[in-house]
Amino acid sequence: MFTFTPQNLQKIEALKSRYPSPNALALPLLWMVQEQEGTISLEAMEAAAPFCDLPPIELYRIATFYTMFKLAPTGRHHIQLCKTLSCALCGKAEILAHLQERLGIGVGEMTPDGRFSLEQVECLGSCGTAPVMQINDVNFENLTPKKIDEILKALS
């Protein structure tokens, strides 16, 4: 059974007073679920729905619209490589090939030990420091194959 942590329940109460309608909490609630559990399950959406006064199906509609909400598990280090134009012009293809070789997985896959998963995403808003990737919430910019090696080595 999914339940929010007492800390998150407090946060929800505080947030409610900041919006004209509890409906506004839909995205914040899904973020809280994801931060708490790693992924968003149907069960969690059902449990969260009353807090924003929406039917569970509405939360499901939202969770499947926004690409950052995870409905399936990813690796402990979820690598998201930007594939949009500025990064593509500055050597994204070489970085992708290197990542695939080092991790031994393709795009959309996870290493068997669950450490890494690899995804390509659209513009991360970091075009001046291309090529760029995000691992979980952290940005890594001006990537080179050598830099990738150092970054991967430092991750457990």
Binding site: L27, Y66, F69, V121, E122
Partner: peptide
């Protein structure tokens, strides 16, 4: 002033 986080939709 409240910061509202989006979730990846251009």
């Amino acid at each position: 002033i409240t910061v509202h986080r989006g979730a990846g939709a251009y």
